[in-house]
Design a protein around this nucleic acid. Structure first.
Length: 490
RNA sequence: CGGGGCGUAGCGCAGUCCGGCAGCGCGCCUGCUUUGGGGGCAGGAUGUCGCAGGUUCAAAUCCUGCCGCCCCGACCA
């Protein structure tokens, strides 16, 4: 037994566990500039899988990718009142270039509504130019005061979708449709049981009419906003004069939406599924789904490695992302720990005894070892990975439900948000929300809603209930006609 | 911006009080051996002691100034 190389236990210090795990699993490392990170190959492979899946879903819903510039004239950000107020404090601004002071400072984009709005004002003339259904994969910069890898970094990677429509109905429909895409991605690929719904006025996007969101619960009971889809109304259309001539010959402002998902979702995956051994990755996104660890002595090395390579080819042919760890300098035990730390869903151990018996030992990242005939693996493992996904999703949902409490008095509310989610009535007054935050550190995370047309449904009966009540804090009549999810958030 | 802490090998740290050969663990390199849950033995490499100045025969250590990072708070789609 040698020294233990592993993350700080979750129970001891969850935040430290998170930071340790990212470093030890080689997902990312700190970069020289405060708040910036380097995404290492293993972490980037995870991001690429996220990109590939989501990009396919965007294309299926009719969107096209484009690319808008990193630099935006500072004046653009100032055209929409709420937008400028929301983003000014965290803007990075370029004042010098080419050895000279610039005539107009350039904002490094914190998001692209403004520059896209500007371009649309030039491109859109007729109702025939609508809808515009665009997406871009890029980086944005927001100079946050406190940073944390993946969750809040000075620069981050994401996708931002932007659409423009002829009617309000169409734009609102788009907003709900894309929330549905994110919800599907979260549940069916990332195994994250998230709660869909609307943000309160206080928590909405700066410049939106309203913001929809999916909110997840991390293993420490805190909430993570995992993606957002905004209905922007005509706010940006008016700011940038984006108009079109409609069928009825009238000149009208377009209706726009925007929606985004960032690498923060990686943080969500880590903190939802991980354990004291390290990462646990959902199989559909895992860079490596199955790792083969060959076990041999000098005399059996050739036989075992040959069998491992044959198996690798078979599994790859069956569509699995498989890797054979034939590093000679490490013992099998070391490799077991190493791949568990990296969250690989399934491991196949292949030694002389197994090769002799035409079998292998398999072990799920969250289960026990079992012996299986070699020939069965290519059919068995894909089914096992599917089951693994379901196990992660249901485990996380069970956990969230256990840490969610329906509360009707403020003391119970305080206890609930110290541990997880509180479902409570609220008056809807932003000042009251602020007071709650000051008194409990909790904020309104989401008003649970469903949009059945787009598959946006709750996974917990308690989130579906409607009703009238009085505000948990001030006792005034409640808004929204249902309970709101409150929690401490990342 | 307020409060606290830390800068010494790739990483984690001791040494600083009381000035006197630059250390420990892990990792890394070489060889032999080992390999079914983080092996063993032997040998080896690696330092602008955050930066600048000062005191001294002598500074990681004392003095002065500066810089950076981390944590807590404020801030934050």
């Amino acid at each position: 037994m040698a020294k233990v190389k592993g993350p700080t236990p979750q129970s001891q210090d969850f935040s430290q566990w998170y930071l340790d795990t990212i470093q030890l699993a080689e997902l990312a490392d700190y970069a020289p500039v405060r708040g910036t990170i380097v995404v290492r190959p293993y972490g980037y492979a995870l991001w690429e899988n996220i990109q590939r899946v989501l990009d396919g879903m965007f294309k299926e819903t009719g969107h096209q990718n484009a690319y808008f510039p990193l630099f935006i004239p500072l004046s653009f950000l100032q055209k929409e009142a709420e937008h400028v107020e929301g983003f000014s404090p965290e803007l990075a601004v370029v004042t010098h270039a080419g050895g000279e002071e610039l005539e107009e400072p350039l904002a490094v984009r914190p998001t692209s509504e403004t520059i896209i709005g500007y371009m649309w004002s030039r491109w859109i003339r007729s109702w025939r130019d609508l809808p515009q259904l665009l997406n871009q994969w890029n980086n944005v910069v927001r100079w946050e005061m406190r940073t944390r890898p993946f969750l809040r970094t000075s620069e981050f990677l994401w996708q931002e979708g932007h659409t423009a429509h002829a009617t309000r109905e169409e734009a609102e429909d788009e907003t709900a449709r894309m929330l549905g895409v994110y919800l599907k991605f979260a549940r069916e690929y990332a195994a994250l049981p998230v709660i869909p719904g609307k943000k309160t006025e206080r928590e909405k996007f700066a410049g939106a009419v309203y913001t929809t969101t999916i909110e997840g619960m991390m293993k420490d009971g805190r909430a993570l906003q995992s993606a957002t889809s905004h209905f922007l109304g005509q706010n940006f259309a008016r700011a940038f004069e984006i108009t079109f001539q409609d069928k009825d010959l009238q000149e009208k402002y377009v209706w726009t939406t925007s929606w985004g998902l960032s690498w923060r979702i990686i943080g969500g995956i880590i903190m939802t599924h991980g354990d004291d051994q390290g990462l646990v990755l959902p199989p559909k996104l895992a860079p490596i789904q199955v790792v083969i660890v060959p076990i041999y002595k000098a005399e059996s090395k050739e036989r075992v490695l040959s069998a491992a390579k044959t198996l690798e080819s078979e599994l790859a042919a069956a569509g699995l992302r498989v890797f054979t760890d034939d590093r000679d300098q490490y013992t099998p035990g070391y490799k077991f720990h190493d791949w568990e730390l990296r969250g690989v869903p399934y491991r196949v151990e292949l030694g002389p005894r197994d090769v002799e018996a035409n079998a292998a030992v398999i072990k799920s990242r969250i289960g026990e070892k079992e012996t299986v005939a070699l020939g069965e693996l290519k059919d068995l493992l894909p089914a096992q990975l599917e089951a693994f996904h379901e196990a992660l999703l249901s485990r996380a949902l069970t956990y969230r439900k256990a840490r969610t409490r329906v509360v009707d008095d403020y003391e119970a509310f305080k206890e609930a948000v110290a541990e997880g989610f509180a479902l409570a009535y609220h008056c809807g007054d932003p000042a009251c929300e602020k007071a709650i935050q000051e008194e409990t550190k909790a904020t309104a995370r989401v008003i649970p809603l469903e949009f059945p047309k787009h598959g946006v449904l709750q996974d917990d009966e308690a989130l579906r209930e409607t009703g009238e009540g009085v505000c948990i804090r001030c006792g005034r009549p409640a808004a929204y006609g249902r309970r709101v999810v409150f929690a401490r958030a990342y």
